[in-house]
C-alpha cells in the first residue's frame, strides 16, 4: 500500500509541489519548451518533454530557493546533455540571482549511457557550477529518497552538497550493487540481497557514517520540514579552506583505517551497540544516534 505522501513514490513534479509553498513555483525551460534529447531520439529511445529534470525557483517557508528535481522513473534519472545543462544552468542562475539555498532532489544512477560522453561532461560541469554557487555563499542541500538513489557521478555530486537529507529508503554510493555483482561476482556483492544492499548503501548506514546529515521518514512533509529547519538555522555553505580540507582529510584517513575490513553496515552498528538499527523506526534511530554522539 503506497502512502499518499510518500517521497519515494512521488514524481519529480510532485516532489517540487510538495516541498515548496503552494503556488510559488516558477519553472525554467519547462516542458512547453520541448527541450528533449536528440541523442535518445537518434537511438529510437523515448524522449521526455523535460528530459527528466525539473528546475526553477519558488519559496519554502517563505524563503526563496532554487529547486532541481530529477525524475528517477525516466531513464533512471540519468544525466544526458540537456538534463545536465538544465542543472548547470540552474546553478548559474543561482549565482546571478542568489537564493537562500539550492534544494537538489537527486534521484539518479549517474551518466545516461545513450549519451554517455555528454553525460560525463555534464556532471563535471555541474560539479564546477555547484562549486561556484557554494563559493558565492549559497548552500546546496541534497534530498535523497527516490528509487534510484544517488549513484555514479551523482553520488559524488550528492557528497559535494552542504547537507544531505535522506530517508531510510534512500540509497547513496558510487557503483550500484548490480554493477559490482556483474563485474566482481555475486560473492563480492549480492545485489538481490535487499537487506544487505540497504546495510551498505541505505539511508541509515549513511546517517550512521555522518554522510547523510539528516534522516527523515519517507514522507514529503518530513523532507520539507528538514529543509525548513536548515533554512531557519541560517547555515551557509560548509567553509572551504586549506585548513578545513586538511581536517577532512584526517577524518577520512581515520575512517578508512578504522573500518579497513568492514563489508557490512551491521558490523558498524554492532560496534556502536545499535545492533537492531535496521529494525528501528526513524525517530528511534535518530534518538539513539543522538545519544551516542
Amino acid at each position: 500500500m503506497t502512502r499518499p505522501r510518500s517521497y519515494r513514490e512521488a514524481t519529480a513534479r510532485r516532489r517540487v509541489a510538495g516541498l515548496l509553498d503552494a503556488g510559488t513555483f516558477t519553472e525554467w525551460v519547462g516542458p512547453g519548451a520541448r527541450a528533449t534529447s536528440p541523442h535518445l531520439a537518434a537511438l529510437g529511445a523515448p524522449v521526455s518533454f523535460d528530459d527528466g529534470v525539473v528546475v526553477g525557483e519558488g519559496r519554502l517557508a517563505g524563503e526563496r530557493v532554487v529547486v532541481i528535481a530529477q525524475e528517477g522513473l525516466f531513464n533512471g534519472g540519468a544525466v544526458g546533455e540537456v538534463h545536465g545543462a538544465k542543472i548547470r544552468g540552474a546553478f548559474e542562475r543561482a549565482c546571478a540571482e542568489p537564493p537562500r539555498a539550492v534544494v537538489f532532489c537527486i534521484d539518479s544512477g549517474g551518466v545516461r549511457l545513450h549519451e554517455a560522453n555528454a553525460g560525463l561532461l555534464a556532471i563535471s560541469e555541474i560539479m564546477r557550477a555547484q562549486f561556484a554557487a557554494q563559493s558565492a555563499g549559497i548552500p546546496v542541500w541534497a534530498l535523497v529518497g527516490g528509487a534510484c538513489g544517488a549513484f555514479g557521478g551523482m553520488g559524488i555530486v550528492a557528497r559535494l552538497c552542504d547537507a544531505v537529507v535522506m530517508s531510510e529508503e534512500g540509497r547513496l554510493g558510487l557503483s550500484g550493487p548490480e554493477v559490482i555483482e556483474t563485474v566482481k561476482g555475486v560473492e563480492e556483492f549480492d545485489a538481490r540481497d535487499r537487506a544487505l544492499v540497504w546495510r551498505v548503501t541505505g539511508g541509515k548506514i549513511r546517517r550512521t557514517l555522518g554522510e547523510a546529515t539528516h534522516l527523515v521518514e519517507d514522507d514529503l512533509t518530513a523532507f520539507r520540514e528538514a529543509v525548513a529547519a536548515l533554512l531557519s538555522s541560517r547555515q551557509g555553505p560548509v567553509p572551504f579552506t586549506l585548513e578545513t580540507l586538511q581536517a577532512a582529510q584526517a577524518g577520512l584517513e581515520g575512517r578508512a583505517a578504522r573500518d579497513a575490513a568492514v563489508r557490512d553496515g551491521q558490523v558498524l552498528w554492532d560496534r556502536l551497540g545499535l545492533d537492531d538499527a535496521a529494525l528501528m523506526e526513524t525517530a528511534q534511530f535518530n534518538r539513539r544516534l543522538q545519544e551516542l554522539s
Binding site: T11, R13, E27, G30, P31, G32, P46, V47, S48, F49, D50, E71, L73, F74
Partner: peptide, 19 residues
C-alpha cells in the same frame, strides 16, 4: 496558462503535455 505536463515516460507508461 502554461503547458502542463502529467505522467512520466517509463516502461508501460506515458507523459502528456496539455496546451
Amino acid at each position: 496558462a502554461d503547458a502542463a505536463l502529467f505522467g512520466v515516460v517509463s516502461s508501460g507508461n506515458l507523459e502528456v503535455l496539455v496546451e
